[in-house]
Structure formats: C-alpha cells, structure tokens
C-alpha cells in the first residue's frame, strides 16, 4: 500500500495516479466526436418548467467524461435524452445531440433500435432490475447477441462466454447457467456491462452504475470500465453523485446543479482549481469527512497554499 506511508513521498505522484491520457487516437471520422451534446435543454410538460438548462460536451473515442451532481440535478435526464429514452412528459426543448455524427432528433424508431446497443449503450444503478429473474443470465446475453449481431445459438453462446471473460468474471461457464438471485450485485453489474458491450458500441453510459455496490466492488467495476476504455477505445460517460468516483475514471468533468452546468473542465482543473462554490463544497466534503482527511496530509497543505 503505497499511500499508507505517512510522509507522503509516494503519494506525491498524484497526477500520474490519475488515468493517464490515452494514446492520441486518430479520429476515425472527420468530425471525430463519438458523442456531441450541444446546449441540450429538457422541459417537463407537467408544470411547464425547464429542468435542464443547456448541457454541452464532446466525447472522442477512448475518452471519458464524468457528470457529477446530486439527485434532481438533471444528470440522469441528460443521459436519458442522449439514449432517446426520456420519461413520459419530458422532452428535449433545445440544443442537439449527435451520436457518431447523426443528429438523434431525426432518427426514426427502427433507426433508434439499430443504434442502441450497437453504437451507444448504457448501464444503470440497480442491475438486478434489468435482468429477467426466471431466465439464466447467459441466455439473456446470448439473446442480445443474437438480436444485435445475428449470430446463431452456438456462436452466440461462445461470444457470450468471451464477453463474460472480458468483464473479469471468474468462472464464465458457471455464471452462464446461473439465475440473477444466485449472483451478487457486483457480478450482475458485470453481466450488464458484458451485455452492454456485446454489440461493440462506441459509447457507453454508466449512470450511477457503482452506487449500489460495496466500495471494494465499486473499485473493481471502475477498474473494468477503465480497462474497456483502454483496450477497446470505448468512449465513456460516467455519471455519479460522488466526485471522487468520476475523478478516478474521467479526463473531463461536468458538475451539474439544478439543471445547470456550474463547472466544466479537465479533471485536474476541476479538482485543483475549482471555480464554482458548489464544486468547492464537493471537494471540501471529501477533505473534511472522507478518507482524504487522513491520507496524504502533506499534499493537502500544499494544495491549501495554492488556494
């Protein structure tokens, strides 16, 4: 445990411990962005209020952007807008969303069906509720593979086992034949991630995907996401209420509050030079009440002198 050293010598290598910038990938298309969100606004028709007041970011392949905010800040609505699954009586009232260069406002239902899974995919907070409890999990992954890639049963099974291995499940053959109630939350989340990447999407949205998990399991899932990003060039949108989670995986952070983006910048900038009061609150919370209070005391003094 390097960072348990009290003198802080090892932990001084902070920026290096952040996920290093991925090797500069050549943009596959001219536009380069896997996902472009431009000034998206979302309105609630029930009381005629705008809930999200303009979110913009661009995501290139192999990069990760994080959205931090409390419940009701509009971060989940933004994700749902990107996926085209806004709840009833919510609607995008302004701005545009482009997935690999295609404006989603012009997509028809069959085009959406085609796009979801194979180009953009998502995992959410409560993995158990996204799986059918009466069907073996392997069959459920194979079904997605069958629908999305047209593989026959045998081949789909083989592919499913490959994916289960790719998400670091210890015994894929065993897990394939198990039901949801036999698996832990962390394992289910891995299975959902395996399903989400089954059709080789370019963008993966992880909306509070680790919130309900134990801390040690959360670390494993975050490791897995970082791994997928490095090896497959997956572009990630990581949504969380915890700044630390987002900081661990992302190169770029948006801080949202009450539907507004109050801070947007590179992770290092946001952590070390927060401009908005709310971002400072998020950081202060970790420093006063989190592990940061005990760890790397030296470092903190340095930072305090910077402010």
């Amino acid at each position: 445990m390097t960072r348990t050293l009290p003198d802080g010598t090892v932990t001084a290598a902070v920026p290096a411990a952040r996920p290093a910038d991925p090797p500069a990938l050549d943009p596959p298309a001219a536009q380069a962005a896997a996902l472009a969100v431009r000034d998206v606004r979302i309105r609630d028709d029930v009381n005629d209020r705008e809930i999200v007041h303009g979110v913009s970011f661009e995501l290139r392949p192999g990069r990760a952007v994080g959205i931090v905010g409390e419940s009701g800040s509009g971060k989940t609505l933004t994700c749902r807008a990107i996926l085209g699954i806004l709840p009833a009586h919510f609607a995008v009232s302004g701005g545009s969303i482009e997935i690999v260069g295609r404006d989603i406002a012009e997509l028809t239902t069959p085009q959406w069906t085609d796009l979801r899974g194979s180009t953009i995919s998502a995992v959410f907070q409560d993995p158990a509720s996204y799986l059918n409890p009466s069907i073996k999990v392997g069959a459920q992954i194979a079904e997605v593979i069958g629908v999305k890639t047209g593989l026959r049963r045998r081949a789909a099974r083989r592919r499913a086992l490959e994916l289960l291995t790719a998400v670091h499940l210890r015994d894929p053959e065993l897990v394939y034949d198990q039901y949801t109630f036999e698996l832990s939350g962390g394992m289910l989340q891995r299975i959902l991630i395996a399903t989400a990447i089954a059709a080789d999407p370019q963008v993966l949205i992880a909306d509070e995907a680790t919130t309900a998990l134990d801390v040690t399991v959360q670390a494993e899932i975050l490791d897995l996401l970082a791994d997928l990003r490095e090896r497959r060039g997956l572009a990630l949108v990581v949504v969380s209420h915890d700044l630390a989670v987002v900081a661990q995986v992302c190169d770029e952070v948006l801080v949202m509050r009450e539907g507004e983006v109050v801070e947007h910048g590179s992770t290092a900038d946001v952590l070390y030079h927060p401009r908005h009061e709310y971002t400072r609150l998020l950081i202060a919370e970790h420093e006063q009440y989190g592990l940061d209070r005990y760890l790397a005391g030296e470092q903190r003094k340095e930072l305090d002198s910077v402010h």
Binding site: D45, V46, N47, R49, H89
Partner: peptide, 14 residues
C-alpha cells in the same frame, strides 16, 4: 401534462 399541451395558454400551478 396533456391538459398543458392542449391548452398552453392556461398557466398551471407548479
């Protein structure tokens, strides 16, 4: 919400 859509002129308490 439906009433709102049909009759956008009428304000609805939030």
């Amino acid at each position: 919400a439906r009433a709102r859509r049909l009759n956008p002129a009428e304000p609805i308490p939030a």
